[in-house]
Design a protein around this nucleic acid. Structure first.
Lengths: 227, 227
DNA sequence: GCAAAAGTGTTCATAGTACACCCATGC
DNA sequence: GCATGGGTGTACTATGAACACTTTTGC
């Protein structure tokens, strides 16, 4: 681990710490999960929280969020979306800590998360089985989840969760898990096929009843749909 | 344009300043304006920027934004909306400054803005006549303007700009100025009358051709529409 | 062959957009 | 009385929601 300093933020007279907290969402076991870590130090020792950390001197907040993501699940090139900045005076019981939140959407099976430093556990937690979270992280998580859903409704940002080729049913299951609601199969088909980044491979997925067709994404055209 | 600023001797290499910058929008002379101030000190001396300032020790970012608003135009009880946080390492040429942006919508005629401290001018500037802005404030302003438009499309947040009673034409002019586009009179009527917070006062505005009817807002019901 | 899943099209409701006529008022 | 602006209603379009039947495959 690098020996970086987290900058002390000066306001008019006193020190404020600036951090990022990341809601890293992943799709596993047919449900949407979020990566939580458990604190091994005070305050909130033993409580689950969103992974986060102090911003370093020569990086942006987004850099810091990407670093947190990389250190935890060893994933890069995943877009981080800024959600909001939380600055309540007493949100940290000891110091003044202001945090900016980000969310990302990854494939959990890629790598196991690693609990580092002042953490003793890390796990993918289903959204409907959340423990109580330390600090104001439940609010941050809820806000991030709303932002994720809103983004997904207007942009196809979940296709990197799928394998190289996939059935529309699999894509629909990802959408349903993220949005937390069931979707009509035909309406879903029509909607995502109306984009033009899905390519029918003319192959059928073997071993599955019904013989579903396999699709893959045209990365160039998909990129055009991400504004 | 930009001139030389006094190079800073680094005394604390880990210091970051946390500020707010406010896009305070107002409706005057039939056009949407934004409050700009001119810097009287380096860096960006002589350049127009969004009003802002450092967050104090015992206030939130929102408190700071409200304070900036109050100090400049002496208006309170106006909702401030957080837009985003900007943390590019070199966005301030001298120090590391991270800023959170807010927007608000006020009636400019209420009070004249006051240039204080390290500012020498303040004025309401029409959005289509913007000067070049210092720092990255043009980007911040553009983002805030987009956020304002998006909010207005989904929430009736402009009615506090209107007098106690007003005609629908006057309301429409406010909407058109903010959204930057002309609206169809009948569609606009239908849309805002479909909400239930507008009360027809059964009076007509005197001195105006056509005899437009005066409306006022039911504050309780309006509040219900603000989520 | 039969159960389960995949592929396909139509209808309806809703929201937004475009548009034309009559009425009230100021001058 | 006439020009200007205010008030009203209808048709078109796009978008999302609801819904049923046929075809393919695993077993």
């Amino acid at each position: 681990m690098k020996t970086e300093y987290s900058p002390r933020v000066t306001t008019d007279s006193h020190a404020v710490t600036l951090t990022v907290d990341c809601a890293i969402f992943g799709f596993a076991d047919d449900s949407l999960r979020v990566l939580l870590v458990r604190r091994a130090v005070e305050p909130y020792r033993g409580d689950w929280v969103l992974p986060g950390g102090a911003m370093y001197q020569n990086e942006t907040l987004e850099d810091a969020a990407i670093r947190v993501l990389r250190d935890l699940v060893n994933v890069e090139d995943i877009p981080m979306h800024q959600v909001a900045t939380y600055s309540a005076v007493n949100r940290h019981p000891v110091r003044r800590v202001i945090t900016s939140s980000y969310f990302a959407l990854v494939s959990p099976e890629d790598h196991d998360p690693i609990a580092r430093e002042h953490l003793d556990q890390a796990r993918w937690c289903a959204l409907n089985e959340l423990p109580e979270l330390g600090f104001d992280h439940r609010i941050i998580l809820d806000d991030a989840y709303e932002a994720l859903k809103q983004e997904l409704r207007s942009q196809p940002l979940a296709f990197h969760l799928l394998p190289e080729s996939f059935t529309l049913k699999e894509a629909q299951e990802v959408y349903e898990a993220i949005l937390g609601e069931e979707l009509d199969r035909r309406n879903f088909r029509r909607k995502i096929l109306s984009y033009d980044f899905l390519i029918n491979t003319a192959e059928k997925k073997p071993g599955v009843k019904g013989g579903p067709e396999l699709y893959r994404v045209d990365d160039v055209k998909l990129e055009e749909h991400m504004s």
